[in-house]
Simulated assay, not measured.
Amino acid sequence: MKRRAQGALEYLFMIAAALIIIFLAVRYLTRTSSTATDLGNSTLENITQELENAGF
């Protein structure tokens, strides 16, 4: 009975570790995409301002 309990506990720890890794990866990707979106928006605003200043 002890071996089965140990196997189940190890299985639960592996699931927990996998969930933590998945959570960190998703968090990193969402942070990266929001940073890229902010950069793209600021670049677009700069281009729009330059075109308005040039008279277009």
Rank of each mutant, 00 (worst) to 15 (best):
I21G: 04
E10V: 06
T35F: 11
A16N: 01
L12V: 03
V26T: 08
L24N: 07
D38A: 14
T30R: 14
F23K: 05
G7I: 03
T43Y: 14
K2Y: 01
L19V: 11
G7R: 12
T37G: 02
N46S: 15
T35R: 15
I15L: 13
A8D: 03
I15C: 03
L44G: 14
Q6K: 09
R31G: 08
S42K: 15
I15Y: 02
R31T: 10
E50T: 06
F13K: 00
Q49L: 13
I21D: 05
A17G: 02
Q6I: 10
V26C: 01
R27V: 05
A8N: 10
A36I: 11
I21E: 09
I20S: 03
I22E: 04
Y11A: 08
R4E: 11
T48Q: 10
A54L: 13
R3V: 02
T37K: 10
F56L: 12
L12T: 02
L24S: 07
L51S: 05
R27M: 06
T35K: 15
A16C: 01
F56D: 07
T48N: 11
L39W: 05
D38Y: 04
V26Q: 05
I21C: 08
M1A: 13
R3Y: 03
A17T: 02
I22N: 02
Y28W: 04
K2L: 09
V26I: 13
T35I: 06
K2E: 11
T32V: 06
R27G: 04
T43R: 15
L39E: 11
K2V: 03
K2H: 02
R31A: 13
T30W: 06
T43P: 00
I15S: 08
L9F: 05
A54P: 00
S34I: 09
K2D: 06
I21K: 12
I15W: 01
A36S: 11
T30P: 00
L19A: 12
